[in-house]
């Protein structure tokens, strides 16, 4: 997902104004409602802002790389996330699995941008589990 930056930034600002600030004003008062929640809200909002900043810095290069990789298969439809995803979706629906490596690569790049540990398979001696 391309982060909807304007919506996220507006939402973070609203969260800080409407939930954290009033609660922080009450911190130190034993009866303060929402004080615990304020801490969690502020921490989560800070993480979202860091993600948004990383997205702003690295998103365009990632998008350009994804479009370049898909262009041999999609032509002009490779430009722009939604156009590319729709075109790859049509190919997949038609049974053309050449779309899948492109989708996997794009998902890997988007996840890597988060800076988190990679997904690890949950495995065991059970047959039939694909994930």
């Amino acid at each position: 997902m391309s982060l909807p930056l304007p919506a996220l930034l507006n939402a973070v600002a609203a969260a800080l104004a409407n939930e954290v600030a009033p609660a922080l004003q009450l911190l130190g008062q034993p009866e303060a409602p929402d004080a615990n929640y304020a801490g969690g809200t502020a921490a989560t909002a800070a993480m979202i802002l860091m993600l948004a900043a990383a997205e702003a810095a690295g998103g365009p290069a990632r998008e350009a790389a994804a479009a370049a990789a898909a262009r041999p298969l999609l032509g002009d439809a490779a430009a722009g996330r939604d156009n590319r995803m729709a075109a790859l979706g049509h190919l997949l629906a038609a049974g053309d699995r050449r779309a899948l490596p492109l989708l996997i690569a794009e998902a890997e790049a988007a996840y890597a941008a988060l800076g988190l540990p990679p997904p690890v398979r949950v495995t065991g001696e059970v047959t039939g589990g694909p994930a």
């Binding site: 034993p30 009866e31 303060a32 409602p33 929402d34 004080a35 615990n36 929640y37 801490g39 969690g40 809200t41 989560t44």
Partner: peptide, 8 residues
């Protein structure tokens, strides 16, 4: 007393 919202 101590009304607090959980984050979660």
């Amino acid at each position: 007393h101590g009304l607090k919202r959980f984050h979660g």
